[in-house]
Computed example of a mutant assay.
Amino acid sequence: MNKQMVFISYSQKDKERVSLFASLMAKNGFDIWMDVKNISLGEYIISAIAEGLSNVDIYMIFISHNSSKSPWVTEELNIALTKNIENKKPQIIPVLLDDCSIPSALSGRLYLDARESIQSALEQLYKNFRHIDVNSANTIISSQSPILTEVIFGLSKETDISIGPFCDGFTKDDLVNNREKVQRLLRKRANGILMNFVPLSDFDLQSPIPKYKNGVYDESVEKISGSTTSSICEKVMAKATVFNPDAKKLDELVKSKLDKLYVTSLSYIFSLPFQESDFDKRCMQRIQDNYSIISYDFEDGATIEYDSNFFVSIRCTPEQIQIKLQAEYDFTFSKKAVNFSPINFIGWLIKETL
């Protein structure tokens, strides 16, 4: 029986919560498409969106203060509404993330309320849209153990060229050309990673940037200090996110291939199928009681030195636990990461908190 294909429309600023929702849906039998909107809005992209919406069963729009300001979301909604009127497809399902107004074009439609809890919105989805075909819609709701729903491979590489003082012979154009070469290399590596988890039929083989079901690819560039005093080079960073990864394939890849893939960080996202009062605080208390915390911020959470020059960041919310692995020196990351078991760490973390 074919899976239902879902087009996810959202603001990049809401990516974390939307990705959690999407990964839980993928865990329960949906095919998810999340496009990264990192290029200018134009006629070609509009036609690509229209073609994409012609091939999905469900259009799910995540409504927030951020999405109300997004030209992408507005354009996708307009196209989806037109397709729905013409073809009775895709089915349109709004998901409310914030205390904000629902677009007038969606007024009167049944919506999912995710303002308080992603889990409750998923329960509402399965209750109110019973005709939607999923293989085991109650898996997450009935389970009482954290479930690995996402893994994020972080790749990075610096340009070989620096420009500035004492960098005679190199121009800005040389730096741009070298950066584009690094970008192509990381995209190839990201595609290599993803092809371990995603069937070839689910790839867009005509896209220069990795595009596939049940995951997201992101890319960014930052300027950093170059090889000589006052010079600059660029660091290209990519993230390949896989929803509902195959545990065996993931273990094989981490243990044998990370050093060949320019992977410099790994993040494991576990969803929590229960709502326990102050669970996130109790997890942080367990970290505090057993480790020296060397840093903390909202994005990564509490960072500890798990092994010499090897760091684990733990971020807990009422709905998920994120564990991010990094090394002080990128070239040592793969050797350190193979000795870390996220499953064992999660088991230890929640042992006395439930």
Rank of each mutant, 00 (worst) to 15 (best):
F274Q: 05
F274W: 08
F274N: 00
F274C: 02
Q275L: 12
Q275D: 11
Q275G: 01
E276V: 14
E276I: 15
E276M: 10
E276F: 12
E276T: 10
E276W: 08
S277C: 07
S277N: 12
S277L: 14
S277F: 11
D278M: 12
D278A: 12
D278F: 10
F279P: 00
F279Y: 09
F279S: 05
D280G: 06
D280P: 01
K281P: 00
K281T: 08
K281M: 09
K281Y: 08
K281L: 15
K281G: 01
K281W: 07
K281V: 10
K281H: 07
K281C: 03
K281A: 09
R282H: 11
R282N: 12
R282K: 15
R282L: 14
R282G: 01
C283M: 02
C283G: 06
C283V: 14
C283Y: 01
C283L: 14
C283W: 00
C283H: 00
M284K: 12
M284G: 10
M284T: 08
M284E: 15
M284A: 07
M284Q: 14
M284C: 11
Q285M: 11
R286Y: 09
R286E: 15
R286S: 11
R286A: 09
R286T: 15
I287T: 05
I287S: 03
I287Y: 02
I287Q: 03
I287K: 02
I287F: 01
I287C: 03
Q288W: 07
Q288V: 12
Q288I: 08
D289M: 11
D289F: 04
D289G: 01
D289A: 12
D289I: 06
D289V: 06
N290S: 13
N290W: 04
Y291E: 06
Y291Q: 05
Y291K: 04
Y291N: 04
Y291I: 05
S292G: 06
S292M: 13
S292I: 14
S292P: 03
S292T: 14
I293S: 00
I293M: 07
I293A: 01
I293H: 00
I293P: 01
I293F: 06
I294E: 13
I294R: 09
I294L: 14
I294M: 12
I294C: 03
I294V: 10
I294Y: 05
Y296L: 11
Y296K: 14
D297P: 00
D297K: 04
D297A: 01
D297R: 02
F298E: 15
F298A: 14
F298D: 15
F298L: 15
F298V: 14
F298S: 14
E299M: 11
E299P: 00
E299L: 12
E299R: 11
E299Y: 11
E299F: 10
E299C: 02
E299V: 13
E299A: 09
D300C: 07
D300T: 13
D300A: 13
D300V: 08
D300K: 13
G301W: 00
G301F: 04
G301I: 02
G301E: 06
A302E: 09
A302K: 09
A302R: 07
A302D: 08
A302H: 07
A302F: 11
A302V: 09
A302T: 07
T303C: 04
T303H: 05
T303M: 07
T303N: 02
T303L: 07
T303Q: 02
T303V: 09
I304C: 04
I304H: 03
I304D: 08
I304E: 08
E305M: 10
E305L: 02
E305W: 03
E305S: 05
E305I: 06
